[in-house]
Design a binder for these strands. Structure first.
Lengths: 241, 241
DNA sequence: TGCCATAACTGGTCTGACCACTTGACCACC
DNA sequence: GGTGGTCAAGTGGTCAGACCAGTTATGGCA
């Protein structure tokens, strides 16, 4: 029996989760006013500061527009939300949103090769040790979820070597979205994380400062599972071209 | 004399800005504890809930680690922050951080062509009207800052046609970072936003459902100013290869 | 030396009060 | 008819004080 870490819950966090789910589910379309803080506090059985904290968090996430003296209105998060919203969209109610999953896969296939190329151009040679160690640990970990985590650690080192804060933060946001879904994706992602030789070849290209090779190898590595996953998503989704 | 909108300031917002600046400037290295909420409230001359609101916001942004009963500690935002932090890094104290600017330019050059390609594959044909109108308005706006804004509107339509929530939110985050710097970038970005013909050609490729052309045209369009800007940044920065 | 109790400190939440701002209604004046 | 002024009701913004929940360090005792 595996012991799991206890997830701490905070009241404002629970308010945020509940309101966010309501918004994403279309319960409050863009432009619609939310009930006042006082009303929400009463309806949810918490204090007004707890509601306020959740609403401020939603405001900073681009989900609502808060104006003193007036009602808090819902925004179109597709226009005003940032990438850090992605985790809340991938697993909205527990199951995976296929359109969100597809978009994440496409995004990482666009970004990964560029990041590998930059790593080969910039910090690759000095990252030889950590990259080799990361691949060795990836190879040694036979648990499907654990190996995915190792792959993420590998990519973290690559994006660190890329020396680009934008890609670094982007990676963090995508990882945050992806990480809770690791168990669900384990069997399909094996097509990627089990190709230890590809990780070694990519490492060699990065360390040897060959950006074109790094770009190509990363694209091949990420492209494999991406195609299979996209195919699976198309099959499930049914109405994609 | 041009009237400008009044920027509303909130106390927790000002606390957040001040603490964030302190963190980004290295005043509190990762792992360091921050003073307690009570101490910060006293030092800043505000109430504890105001401090608390700022700290919770920082916690959700990945800047600090808050644990009940213990001190709030500073995290390494490069590892725990998300893309939505980018606006705070590009203009930390008013001037532009060149490394951040460089990384944003690189990122948009990696993402833009892919987004254009997806738009040509998916929603391009049905977006003909809005794209044509966006280019017409871009051409008609002769103000350097205004034209950049029009270019952003154009790209917003392209990314909407791409039908990818990940790229959509990514665009939002990058735009949020980029927008306050528009005046400072106006003269250099003219090399891009003045190429009306290129925007028209890109629109035509997207609308005609030619993804390879769209990809190439977007890369050329974005690549031009990117190279010039990166060259300018290298000149200013001095120690880049 | 290890364990337990306690105190001090931290963050988490709440209540009630008051302030600042917005909106709509109504009135007076030009 | 349009503009400006006042007022009331409602909203969000902030604060003080109290109390709860959790963490950490210290001292005493077996």
């Amino acid at each position: 029996m595996a012991l799991e870490r206890i997830q701490r819950r905070s009241l404002p966090g629970e308010v945020y989760d509940q309101l966010l789910r309501e918004l994403v589910d279309g319960g409050y379309p863009a432009g619609q006013p939310l009930p006042s803080e006082r009303r929400l506090a009463e309806a949810l059985g918490v204090s007004r500061p707890a509601v306020r904290e959740a609403l401020q968090r939603m405001s900073h996430a681009g989900l609502v527009d808060v104006r003193q003296g007036g009602a808090t209105t819902v925004t179109d998060f597709r226009r005003s939300g940032g990438l850090d919203l992605l985790p809340h969209l991938l697993l909205p109610g527990g199951g995976i949103d296929l359109a969100v999953a597809r978009s994440i896969l496409e995004a990482r296939l666009a970004i990964g090769p560029k990041v590998a190329e930059l790593a080969a151009t910039r910090g690759g040679p000095t990252a030889a040790d950590v990259l080799d160690r990361a691949v060795a640990e990836l190879a040694a970990d036979t648990d499907p979820v654990g190996r995915q985590r190792r792959a993420l650690v590998f990519w973290e080192h690559v994006v660190e070597a890329a020396d680009s804060i934008a890609f670094r933060l982007m990676f963090n946001s995508l990882r945050a979205a992806y990480e809770p879904a690791l168990p669900a994706l384990a069997t399909v992602m094996a097509a990627e994380v089990d190709r230890i030789g590809d990780y070694r070849a990519l490492t060699a290209a990065v360390v040897a400062a060959r950006p074109d090779d790094a770009h190509r190898l990363a694209h091949d590595l990420l492209g494999n599972a991406t195609r299979e996953l996209l195919h699976a998503i198309d099959t499930l989704d049914g109405d994609r071209p």
